[in-house]
Design a binder for these strands. Structure first.
Length: 588
RNA sequence: GCCCCCGUAGCUCAACGGAUAGAGCAGUGCUCUUCUAAGGCAUUGAUGUAGGUUCGAUUCCUGCCGGGGGCACCA
């Protein structure tokens, strides 16, 4: 990439002037200026060095530029460099040539709609855990958020050449299960012969959980009963409960699978708390006295020693908590699929627990702790306050999607689509809208989820990107009908161009060529929002381009070149949306 | 009380220590005999507060104010 090349060039010029860059290492760099008009690349080296050398940055910048020009007469041709300018207070701006852009766009045309990958992480093995819904409970918009972010990050890492395996970890044992089972029994009508007819619907289980959860707080007798059920779920000693449990678990898992298909996620590994708890419990017991200690009948980790919270790992009922299970999971994962990096994506509400778990992991398996990375994401909150499955105040992923789909189908009601097309478009737009609103902000922060906002398809939105792509495709189709095809003209080495080109390099061209860099940066920072922002700006450039001139025009010699830009745009938009797992449509 | 995260336009969000703090929504005014108007163009509007470090601070440090999360047997 040009970053490295320009960096080297600058280093060389500075050295020739007799300055040392050691002093300012890490404080200067080559970057894209905020505004396209300021050039394609810029460096602040003169500002940083000028301070260190007590020199006027502007003068220093001028010196460096002079040196750059001299050294570019060293026989090496730099066909990509148009000119270098100095701008106050001491920036050096690089402008690239038309040949450079033509060559870059040509690469996109050759690679098609799977563009933007790299080899930064080639050969690296990565396991990434996300979504983590709990059987017997609702799949709510928080899970939707985790899944959306996790899938996008997975695809980004994959794009850089790593081998990525996706994992989902599901809490199929624990108090919440006992609460749901208790609730399911209570929900049965007295007329039911056994009184314990199994629930078939996931929504029923959500209600059952809410009921169990409420009485657990308010009713001492029910609480005891639920605690009993909890033990029986762990040791599977009650055949009647096992029956309810097995059916309920399967209902949940089938339901989750259906949602994953809609979200375009496929997990390579499904881990369960029913597998991780025995491992975790054993690990904790083995390390009592070393890492853990007994306190008040429970086994705890004294976090204060490390400036962390003290957490319970085994309850006085001798049941493992979240923390113990998580410890077992880490070991389980490493046995099933040894990796170079293990990423866990969860809501930030468990961030402090995870820090504690990681500390214990560090004390027991230092190597595992080293490769484990926790990426907490914000919570999806309702404008009215926090969502809670305890009280039954939840927005499920399914109901939200259904609601958005209703609005979408109203919008396309008068269009000429058949029933099947209508369903495909409605589903894709709804998924695109919700995924966009999740991915558009930096992952660590909470999202105030406003339904009315999510239902708006204008401006910064998933449908805006989908629409821009559809529009580009329509233009390309028209070009084919008119017998005009994408052509960037002669390769950069040739002096004569067979296709008419505009004299100026457009904003669209400048943006188009930055895609691979954006993907690389979004990957290394685990920040899909950088890619979303880029795609939105790119779409905006394309839409403005589209609005200013007619692209397909048999009488215009530049038409083939414009179609080439349109085609490049369509490839990059499709590549980008696919990396984010946002559905791409051919018509809407 | 202690720990962590966060305060940017009326609202929802951007900004790798740099250049004139960017968008979208909402508001206002234009724009479809032309490739899809889910579009385009124009326009109003912001860094919680007091200090500090720096040539330069939304960004780093400290205090205060405000919001969220967590703080022993739930996850």
């Amino acid at each position: 990439m040009l970053f490295q090349e320009i960096t080297k060039l600058v280093e060389m010029a500075v050295r020739k002037l007799g300055y040392s860059l050691e002093l300012v290492a890490g404080r200067w760099g080559v970057e894209h200026p905020d505004e396209l008009a300021r050039g394609d690349y810029a460096t602040n080296v003169a500002l940083v060095l000028g301070k260190e050398m007590k020199q006027n940055p502007m003068e220093l910048a001028e010196q460096i530029v002079r040196e750059l020009k001299t050294s570019s007469a060293d026989g090496r041709t730099r066909s990509w460099l148009e000119r270098v300018e100095v701008a106050p207070p001491g920036f050096i701006n690089f402008f690239l040539t038309q040949d450079f852009f033509t060559a870059e766009l040509k690469k996109v045309l050759e690679k098609g709609d799977k563009y933007g990958g790299g080899v930064v992480e080639a050969g690296k093995k990565v396991l990434i855990e996300y979504t983590d819904p709990n059987p017997f409970k609702e799949f709510h918009i928080g899970h939707l958020m985790s899944n959306t972010i996790g899938e996008a990050i997975s695809r980004l890492i994959e794009s850089q050449g790593a081998e990525v395996k996706r994992a989902c970890y599901q809490g199929d044992v624990g108090l919440h299960v006992a609460k749901a089972i208790y609730g399911s029994v209570k929900l049965k009508t007295p007329a039911s012969p056994s009184g314990r007819q199994n629930l078939k619907e996931i929504t029923e289980w959500g209600k059952a959980y809410a009921l169990g959860s409420q009485v657990y707080e308010s009713d001492e007798v029910a609480k005891q009963e639920i605690n009993e059920i909890n033990k029986k779920v762990y040791d599977r000693s009650d055949t009647e409960i096992n029956k309810i449990y097995d059916t309920g678990r399967q209902v949940s898992l089938d339901y989750f699978e259906m949602i994953y298909q809609r979200l375009d996620t496929k997990f390579d590994y499904n881990f369960f708390e029913s597998e991780s708890w025995p491992i975790g419990q054993k690990l904790v017991e083995e390390n009592v006295g070393k890492v853990f200690e007994k306190s008040d009948g429970a086994v705890i980790f004294r976090g204060e020693k490390y400036n962390l919270h003290t957490r319970v790992f085994l309850t006085k009922e001798n049941l493992p908590t979240y923390e113990a299970k998580e410890l077992g999971l880490a070991k389980l994962k490493s046995e099933q699929y040894p990796v170079d990096q293990s990423i866990v994506i969860t809501g930030n509400e468990v961030a402090s627990y995870f820090t504690v778990v990681k500390k214990t992991l560090e004390l027991i398996f230092p190597d595992l702790a080293k490769i484990t990375k926790h990426l907490p994401h914000g919570m999806l909150r309702l404008p009215t306050g926090k969502m809670s499955s305890h009280t039954g105040v939840v927005v499920t992923a399914e109901s939200l999607l259904a609601e958005i789909k209703t609005v979408v189908s109203e919008k396309i009601a008068d269009r000429n689509f058949n029933t099947n097309e209508r369903e495909v478009i409605t589903e894709a737009v709804a998924i695109g809208a919700i995924k966009y609103s999740i991915l558009k902000q930096s992952p660590g922060r909470d999202i105030i989820f406003d339904l009315a906002k999510a239902l708006s398809f204008e401006g910064d939105s998933g449908p805006y990107l989908q629409y821009s792509y559809v529009r580009a495709r329509a233009v390309i189709e028209k070009g084919i009908a008119e017998n005009i095809f994408a052509n960037l003209g002669q390769p950069p080495t040739s002096a004569k161009a067979s296709v008419g080109k505009p004299a100026e390099i457009s904003e669209l061209e400048r943006r188009l060529t930055r895609f691979p860099e954006v993907v690389a940066r979004a990957t290394s920072l685990y920040a899909p929002n950088l890619l979303i922002t880029y795609l939105t700006e790119l779409a905006s450039s394309f839409n403005a381009y589209y609005a200013t001139q007619k692209i397909v025009d048999p009488t215009d010699p530049q038409s083939a070149y414009r179609l080439a830009l349109t085609t490049t745009f369509s490839h990059i938009m499709k590549s980008g949306l696919t990396l984010l797992a946002i559905p791409v449509l051919e018509q809407m």
